[in-house]
């Protein structure tokens, strides 16, 4: 009520200065917007430049690919991709990577969802300790898992099998899955399953029919993260596999360390082929990736 009246009694000259300063503020704001967009564009370019460079390297003729300063005009070639597909085990190992990742996701969710649900509902001190344990395990170096698993795998004769690799990946990713799902379950009101139980549902039936359908986005987020982690993992497959169960990360890395220039274009092609679907995922599943990454920090 008092605000408009003070504006009214403002003397004329003051209003004029207010007008001129507001246009200069406007100009400054426009400059600020330009700077912000320039900054963001630069950062975005820096994020993807290595992949663009790998793409260029993979399609340049061999004589143009490895010279400094770089050659900018050339006729694109797909020879590296043909060689990658037909002359190496890329396709076979790629298929194996997907199979391993999908099975890891299924087992992680099947085990993780009930565990996370229980943790979100019972606040007994055991649940709390389990949660802290899950957090601590999320922090442990991979070697703590990889070296003992290597010994076990040798002893049980399951070294270099998909089963061994999946068991290890589930063990490593489980704490994160449980932690993430617990936060999603904790947000669903208790009254939901209490109502179901009053209507005669068992505790498990209430979880299955009431909670699980509502937790869809949470399960999808946890699934995407487990899938990405399984594909990204390097140390576990490098220690636990040799030939049969090996994954693309290990395959590409083993080429990358080799110091043979003639192989570099094939590695570049493999990197590009692996990166494209993952980049697509980052765009189409952005909402879930963002909620998964911030979930632990904000809701925890």
């Amino acid at each position: 009520m008092s605000a408009p009246s003070t504006v009214k009694i403002r003397p004329q000259p003051r209003r004029l200065t207010a007008v001129t300063s507001s246009t200069s503020v406007g100009r400054r704001r426009r400059w600020k917007t330009v700077l912000i967009y320039a900054g963001l564009s630069l950062a975005a370019l820096a994020s993807v430049l290595p992949f663009i460079w790998a793409l260029l390297t993979s399609v340049k003729p061999y004589t143009d690919a490895f010279v400094s300063p770089p050659v900018w005009t050339f006729t694109p070639q797909v020879g590296a991709y043909e060689e990658l597909w037909y002359a190496t085990r890329f396709a076979e190992i790629g298929l194996n990577t997907i199979v391993v990742a999908v099975i890891t996701v299924i087992i992680s969710l099947a085990v993780g969802a009930p565990a996370a649900y229980a943790l979100s509902r019972y606040d007994s001190s055991i649940a709390l300790w389990l949660l802290i344990l899950a957090l601590v395990f999320r922090a442990l170096p991979r070697f703590v898992v990889a070296l003992p698993f290597y010994t076990i795998a040798q002893a049980l004769n399951i070294y270099d099998t998909q089963m061994m690799l999946i068991i290890a990946l589930v063990a490593v990713n489980q704490p994160f899955t449980i932690w993430l799902l617990r936060n999603f379950f904790a947000e669903l009101p208790r009254q939901l399953e209490e109502a179901a139980q009053i209507d005669g549902c068992s505790r498990f039936a209430a979880f299955r029919h009431v909670i699980l359908p509502l937790a869809g986005p949470g399960l999808l987020t946890a699934g995407i993260f487990t899938f990405l982690l399984a594909i990204q993992e390097y140390l576990i497959p490098v220690v636990l596999t040799q030939q049969n169960a090996t994954t693309l990360s290990v395959f590409i890395a083993s080429f990358g360390i080799a110091e043979d220039t003639s192989l570099y274009q094939i590695i570049a092609a493999a990197s590009v082929l692996l990166a494209i679907p993952i980049i697509a995922l980052a765009f189409f599943a952005q909402r879930f990736i963002v909620s998964g990454l911030t979930g632990g920090a904000i809701k925890g």
């Binding site: 975005a44 430049l49 290595p50 460079w53 390297t57 594909i231 990204q232 390097y234 990360s249 990166a275």
Partner: peptide
């Protein structure tokens, strides 16, 4: 912008490290 900024984070570390070092 977020989609582009996320790219280095979601690609496997070993592959990101390799192509980053090529620059």
């Amino acid at each position: 912008f977020l989609g582009l900024l996320l790219v280095p984070y979601v690609v496997p570390t070993v592959i990101g490290a390799l192509v980053f070092s090529w620059l």
